[in-house]
Amino acid sequence: MPTKSVPVLTLQGARTALAAAEQRAQEIGVPMNIAVVDNGLHLLAFARMDGAKITSIDIAINKAFTAAGHRAPTSVYKDAVWPGGPAFGINTSNGGRFTTIAGGVPVVQDGVVVGAVGCSTGTPPQDADVAGKGVEAVVKTFGTKAKL
């Protein structure tokens, strides 16, 4: 068969992730830019909370893009991107959109990446925490298996 069907994150799933991420950002007191993309790396949902950094809009979108496209949390690059590291310079790939800062987390269903959540404005651990809560909400609501 020359084609294959794969699951994809829906708008309903994206809205679930967005709401949970916003709630977590409010709980920790850090307004965030929150982006949700599908497995084709296209933006499904986005929110810029009051007080979130304007310069973090593209960063949140690119964290989601990277997590979905590379099928891994953006935090995995922390130790590999320094000069001399095995992934040094990877941030210049994909038109400069590849992001190596924590805060992008893929959503996985049945072993397939169906989308991702990307957050930015806080510290990298805060961004990853908020994105992770968005992914967890999708997992809990729709029964997917998350790769956190």
Rank of each mutant, 00 (worst) to 15 (best):
Thr121Ser: 15
Glu136Ile: 06
Asn94Trp: 10
Val130Gln: 05
Val107Phe: 10
Ile57Tyr: 01
Gly122Lys: 01
Lys53Tyr: 05
Lys53Gly: 09
Thr141Arg: 14
Arg71Ser: 12
Val30Ile: 11
Arg71Gln: 13
Val138Ser: 02
Thr10Ala: 11
Lys63Ile: 04
Lys133Ser: 13
Val112Thr: 14
Ala52Asp: 12
Lys63Ala: 05
Leu11Gly: 10
Asp79Ala: 15
Gly29Ile: 14
Ala67Glu: 00
Trp82Gln: 13
Asn33Arg: 09
Val6Cys: 00
Gly115Ile: 05
Ile28Pro: 10
Ala128Phe: 00
Ala47Gly: 02
Ala52Trp: 08
Thr66Met: 07
Gly89Met: 12
Gln126Gly: 09
Val105Met: 14
Val135Phe: 03
Pro31Asp: 08
Pro83Ser: 06
Val37Phe: 02
Thr123Gln: 14
Asn94Gly: 08
Gly103Val: 13
Thr99Gly: 02
Asn62Lys: 13
Thr92Pro: 05
Gly89Ile: 08
Met1Asn: 11
Val36Cys: 08
Ile59Glu: 06
Met49Cys: 12
Ser5Met: 09
Gly13Thr: 04
Gly143Asp: 12
Val37Ile: 08
Phe88Ile: 06
Ile57Phe: 03
Thr3Ala: 14
Ser93Thr: 15
Leu41Ser: 14
Tyr77Gln: 09
Val138Ile: 15
Met1Lys: 08
Lys133Ile: 05
Pro124Asp: 11
Gly96Ala: 09
Ile28Tyr: 12
Ala21Trp: 01
Lys145Asp: 12
Gly40Asn: 10
Lys133Arg: 13
Asp110Glu: 14
Val114Asn: 04
Ala128Cys: 07
Thr144Tyr: 11
Asn39Gln: 06
Leu9His: 03
Val130Gly: 05
Ala64Val: 03
Thr121Cys: 10
Gly84Cys: 06
His42Pro: 01
Val114Cys: 12
Val8Cys: 07
Arg71Gly: 03
Leu43Ser: 10
Ile34Asn: 04
Thr3Cys: 00
Gly51Lys: 12
Gly89Lys: 10
Gly40Val: 04
Leu11Pro: 01
Ile59Cys: 01
Thr66Phe: 07
Ala20Phe: 00
Ala128Met: 13
Asp38Met: 00
Thr100Cys: 01
Gly95Phe: 06
Asp129Cys: 04
Phe98Ile: 12
Pro7Lys: 12
Ala146Pro: 14
Gly69Trp: 02
His42Cys: 01
Thr141Leu: 05
Asp38Gln: 00
Ala21Val: 02
Ile59Phe: 04
Ala47Asp: 14
